[in-house]
């Protein structure tokens, strides 16, 4: 894996719902720890932009989509369990 490739994330949240706030916090923490300075996060509120959710088939919130590097990955939930999340994002070398 090219360690230099930047990670592009899009996080779908539902307004200021508690689990959405948790997901934002967890994602920020994860990126700080594992991907310092090589990530970008876009947060989409499905209440404000429902057409996004419809077009991208985002039915559950919060949902994290890793747009890059490929492959595109989708993780549903508050991202509270760090190991499976890292594994899914291709940062699995850290998990045992």
């Amino acid at each position: 894996m090219n360690r230099g490739a930047p990670y592009r994330f899009r996080l779908y949240v539902a307004g200021d719902a508690q689990n959405s706030a948790q997901a934002i916090a967890n994602l920020n923490a994860l990126c700080r720890e594992h991907l310092p300075d090589r990530h970008s996060i876009e947060i989409v509120d499905v209440f404000r932009k429902p057409e996004y959710a419809l077009a991208e088939s985002i039915f559950m919130t919060p949902t994290l989509v890793k747009l890059g590097p490929l492959p595109v990955r989708t993780i549903v939930g508050t991202l509270s369990q760090t190991q499976p999340v890292l594994h899914a994002l291709g940062l699995g070398t850290l998990s045992v």
Binding site: Y12, A14, G15, A17, N19, Q22, A23, N26, V46, F47, P50, E51, A53, L54, S57, I58, F59, M60, T61, P62, T63, R73, T74, I75, V76, G77, T78, L79, S80, Q81, P84, V85, A88
Partner: peptide, 28 residues
């Protein structure tokens, strides 16, 4: 028609809810 089949490769981590779907449906 709204396709809402859960993707098999979708990873779940922590709690979530249906707000996304309901917001999408509301728009529709």
């Amino acid at each position: 028609f709204l396709d809402a089949q859960p993707m098999s490769d979708r990873v779940h981590s922590g709690t979530f809810d249906l707000s996304g779907m309901l917001a999408a449906l509301e728009a529709q």
